[in-house]
Nucleic acid binder design. Structure first.
Lengths: 239, 239
DNA sequence: CGGGACGTTGACGGTCGTCAAAATTAGTGG
DNA sequence: CCACTAATTTTGACGACCGTCAACGTCCCG
């Protein structure tokens, strides 16, 4: 039990600066620790929450990698995002107290379970938490703006380049390499996220390899020429 | 001055049920009235806020019609949404205290100016406001999921059909016709929002007209066959 | 070793973007 | 009110990009 108490404390979690506000007093830290009522392990392939399921908790990812995907009634489905350690999932459920997408673990993962009514309660008392919650939701809105821009105005190569740059940048913020990454998702999932078919994903990877922009061995990717990728996304403002 | 005081009261605003929580006590209503510090008129074509501008306020649309659009550095730009009376704009600015998109009035409009720190302050005291703010942000996230699905997996006809249905549904919720609407935006703006070129928008409209699904006279649209539109969006789950 | 999931590659066709011109509307000044 | 220009929209012809279908290759795991 002691172990459990220690385990669920945000105050000594090494992901804290990624998912919690900074600069808290000890008192505030104590309150924040109450946010997380449990940890939950999710095996690769398992679902953290389903679309249609009642919403009660937000989840902070401690370890592992998730995808969120919509499954509309007519069978159309799409990956709406990939989430890694320190990121929060479940925000879509707040409006109607119902999750509107599935969250699936792409590798064995562990999440912190945070009952949303407790979040609301504590954020009434701890201003910086309140602000933090607002920022997290706003960040998600801005992130989705980026996805909308990608889907609405980029071609296949630009999409994949933007995708790789985004992934590696987020991984780097977590202490991983700037130039090497392991894709936790299949080509199909990449395609779904980027609004392109699996064959196009594969072909575009091949093209990048041919141009010595990346090395690809299955899901292991090494970026050889970051500038080239940036150039593809952002075709050189010439003026 | 008296006039001004009366004017900015949410408690007697006829858009209240669209943008404010319901079931408040009188006391809470008084607090809510403090949210709106001013009204602001925005002329057609004028900008409510610019990308890059400092974020301090959220805006509730009282009358009129807006578009929000990203203008990425490389000249790529895209309409990310259209907003009408009762909807809130500015949420994207919260993360970094900076607006990340432009909000432009597509017709003469009036908005309620709500300083965000005041929203945070009052929502610490009025639980239903807190909940409401969270729901509004979550709703925006879910709305964007829909746009992502549209852009990532629909073809031109499906996009335009979904767009028309969405518009008319929201207008109907505001007391307008279920079958008739006036487009406040240009074909180009529609195209930008739907990720298609203006010519494709035009052609798709023409196709719908030819099939007697809609009547189009410039920006005036009459929907003749709602079911056909729904059928285009959602190609009949046959199984 | 063999089956199945996953990924790659090729050939072909459809959808939609591009370019161009015409048509319609809006806006301006006389 | 009308003439004239600018802006927006429509339509057509053509081609590129990417989706579809199919076959083949690779990896994983029992």
């Amino acid at each position: 039990m002691k172990l459990q108490t220690i385990k669920v404390a945000c105050s000594n979690c090494n992901m804290r600066e990624l998912c919690m506000p900074v600069g808290l007093s000890n008192d505030e830290l104590d309150r924040i620790d109450d946010l997380v009522t449990a940890r939950r392990k999710v095996k690769r392939g398992d679902v953290l929450f389903h679309s249609g399921e009642q919403f009660t908790n937000l989840f902070a990812i401690r370890t592992g990698f998730f995808k969120t995907c919509i499954n509309s009634e007519d069978g159309r489905g799409q990956v709406t995002g990939f989430q890694m350690a320190g990121e929060i999932v479940g925000l879509d459920g707040i409006v109607n107290d119902t999750h509107t997408c599935d969250a699936v673990a792409l590798e064995d993962a562990e999440v912190c379970v945070m009952p949303f009514d407790r979040i609301e309660e504590i954020s009434r008392e701890v201003n910086s938490l309140q602000r933090h919650v607002h920022k997290i939701m706003s960040r998600e809105i801005v992130r989705e703006h980026g996805v909308i821009l990608l889907l609405g105005s980029m071609r296949a190569e630009e999409r994949l380049a933007a995708f790789l740059l985004n992934l590696v940048q987020r991984l780097h913020a977590r202490g991983f390499s700037q130039s090497e990454l392991i894709l936790r998702m299949s080509r199909e999932e990449i395609g779904s996220y980027l609004g392109m078919k699996i064959e196009t994903v594969s072909r575009t990877f091949s093209k990048f390899v041919e141009e010595n922009i990346v090395e690809v061995k299955q899901r292991h990717v090494r970026i050889l020429n970051t500038d080239a990728l940036k150039d593809i996304v952002n075709p050189k403002a010439c003026d």
